[in-house]
Nucleic acid binder design. Sequence first.
DNA 1: TCTGAAGTAAACAGAATTGTTTACTTTAAT
DNA 2: ATTAAAGTAAACAATTCTGTTTACTTCAGA
Lengths: 190, 190
Amino acid sequence: MDAAEIESPKKRKIVETAYHLFKTRGFYATGVDLIMQTASVSKRTLYKYFPTKNELIVSVLNYYRAAYADYFNQILAQQDKSSRQKILNIFEDAEQWFEDINFHGCLAVNAMGEFSGKDRAIEDSCIRFKQWEIDMLTMLTRDITSRQSEELAYKLFVLLEGMSAIAQVAKGKCPVNMTAMADEMIKKYL
Amino acid sequence: MDAAEIESPKKRKIVETAYHLFKTRGFYATGVDLIMQTASVSKRTLYKYFPTKNELIVSVLNYYRAAYADYFNQILAQQDKSSRQKILNIFEDAEQWFEDINFHGCLAVNAMGEFSGKDRAIEDSCIRFKQWEIDMLTMLTRDITSRQSEELAYKLFVLLEGMSAIAQVAKGKCPVNMTAMADEMIKKYL
DNA sequence: TCTGAAGTAAACAGAATTGTTTACTTTAAT
DNA sequence: ATTAAAGTAAACAATTCTGTTTACTTCAGA
């Protein structure tokens, strides 16, 4: 659905390149010249597909969600696993991602930090991203507790977001097994 | 200690103004001209105290920590309360702050998003800020469990950071009583 | 009263930014 | 082979940004 937004290979290359640059160098700090040179694309082509830099940023945020959705669908597809196991898999993966020295936090959180109150389309994209994340988790927690699925999903979401924020700033091994902590959380709702 | 860095009233005004602008509008997006006009200070004076914008940013981050430290010292000073109660007070306050429509997330997290890999002094300031936060929490958890104080502090820290990140992006009432969640967390270590 | 520190106002330099335009080239499908 | 779409290269316009410099003002204390 969202991945279909990108038809042309050049357009896709621009978005992928911009995604990587925005993630590692920030949004304001990454100029269109750098994106264009890194993607080996002329400025004319870039502005053909994305009339403004901010529209490119919105596309990058949508691409980010689409990539995340691909990962999530892989998790959901494993029919031999329970929802509880799927959630724990997500936490295991997250612990690995976040301990990477090159982890730069959630792109939507970073974008909100730079564009809050400045660009409505970007803000909306960030808000929709977080809502989508909660919805995905709630899909899984519904199999654990139908009555309190939203509550449990939100608690797990807080853990994931906290891990991410801390990992972005304070590099270094996490002294807590977060997956085990999530499991304890889940157990109370079984 | 850190508050003493600011002697001159003009210097203090610049830092306070810049803090407010950086918080609400981001770092790159806030130009020195705006800071200077908002603080009613000439550019010459601004550059006398802060030879570069990035040095001003570092001072703002230190000011942010100093302000946070003032709040923390108030909490610590309440000798009629147990450490457990003090921690719960922090969570109650946090829940209030984060539900404010004008909440813009942790300044150090936002700064890391914009300057990661770009300015070592800013990065260090952000890292020291988070380390300081954990240290403060660990001071309190030591009274609850001497052996596992760091583990408990880190878990509480994850909750606070998660609440902050979510509040920054996804405005709207939190469906979980986070203070109660923190208390459950603490109970296991009593 | 003189002096020196602190500050103002505003022009200026130089680089960097986003976005536009012109002229030319490649390429894929009919 | 022709043609239309897609792309390139590069100059250009218009701002905007950080940081510098010059010339002037204010004001408290010795």
